[in-house]
Design a protein around this nucleic acid. Sequence first.
RNA 1: GGCGAGAUAGCAAAAUGGUUAUGCAGCGGAUUGCAAAUCCGCCUAUCCCAGUUCGAUUCUGGGUCUCGCCUCCA
Length: 463
Amino acid sequence: MLKIYNTLNREKQEFKPIKPGHVGMYVCGMTVYDYCHLGHARVMVVFDMVQRWLKASGYDVTYVRNITDIDDKIIRRAGENKESIHALTKRFIDAMHEDADALGVERPDHEPKATQFVPEMLSMIERLEKNELAYQAADSDVNFSVRKFAGYGKLSGKSLEDLRAGERVEVDSNKNDPLDFVLWKHARSDEPDEVKWDSKWGKGRPGWHIECSAMSSRLLGEHFDIHGGGADLQFPHHENEIAQSEGANRCQFVNYWMHNGFVRVDNEKMSKSLGNFFTIREVLERYDPEVVRFFILRAHYRSPLNYSDAHLDDAKGALSRLYTALKCVPSPLALLPEGEGVNWNEPHAQRFKAAMDDDFNTSEAIAVLFDLANEVNRSQSLQLAGQLKSLGLVLGLLERDATEFLQGGSGGLDDAAINSQIAARNEAKKAKNYAQADKIRKELLEAGIVLEDTAQGTSWRRG
RNA sequence: GGCGAGAUAGCAAAAUGGUUAUGCAGCGGAUUGCAAAUCCGCCUAUCCCAGUUCGAUUCUGGGUCUCGCCUCCA
């Protein structure tokens, strides 16, 4: 029985889908004006893992992850670059897909772009206006009136009074209440036509929060199962989504809210404003993407995750141990009937399932993988090796051939050079010229190549 | 200031009212021409102070410290 920590109640709850056997899940994706950083990688990998586990548990999942392709930062960046909004966002959407693909993130079922759902947003704003939750201010912006929505603050645990006390924003005198947020921004003369849409309130463009409310209800219905995103979206973004959706649709919006923890650098949140971020592609220049995915999944999704080279090196060593166990047994999956996959009656699989069902405890699940690797090494059992690989696949790990992983990466030497050195060393060994054999091995080691003599001959890997 | 999360061994990271987490690193042994890999064994923990309890790292209260949200942020 799957339990999910629900931010709404701050406790783990048994997961019950609205429609038996089906899960509707919406995750806040990227604002595409720059390359994704490791924080984005975490959201993508974490919720990819979530949807994989839901599928592995037998659910039919509809997974939606939006793309914000219109907002202040995009307009500003396009202006700086002297390129169109569309050209800018297309570039970074393509880059995002490259990064996500590299990390083994499956494409969501839908990736709606905000600009494609403006009519839905306008219709929702109209309903909010009809329900007396929205008003047009003197500057022509249409705002949401937080005071008129009774449940405001229920997700983030904030009250309007608390928020007011900590007010740090410059007060916008056009708003009835400083905490009101914008649904529709009036068009400005210095903005390109590309960002202006017609509406009954005049030309303009959508506020940030309304897109998620409009797109989720269009693609998943007005009431759906899971909504996810980074912990920083809890307030105000998700709080505002609730206000909009429940205010417009007059029904519960989302049953389970999930928020992943931050990636940190030197114990501080990785963020654009602090400038302490690493882009995914930067990191992938130096580390195997699967190592990065493993690094992310080795921690629980709600825990903070400290980024450093030392930690990625550690992750690489750990992942190598799993692949090494698979290497000891030739082509484990080839020996399993097609599509058989995990044997869920096997004890390790049961522990794995129990861990995953406990709020997606990938840390515990991966610990089971290591126990299984130990069993595989001891028993040389093809069945257990297949089981190890199959369980890895559930997390989007261990997909590759073990030797390919262990020999992958960039070394100074190519395969042919390495193999000829190994041959030379074997000649020396045969002649009992161990000094020469050890010299060759040492040279290879200095080039990052580790040799392993086995009964089947000498193999190598990149250390 | 308001609200929230957390402090576990050298590092990273789970779990648990009493019984081995796990990985990396370290130590000893097996194996190996010597290594590597692997196996066996070992060593390092639960921020501080009270309380509840036969027993607390785990529950309660109080400290201390860290981080986050309250502005754009995954």
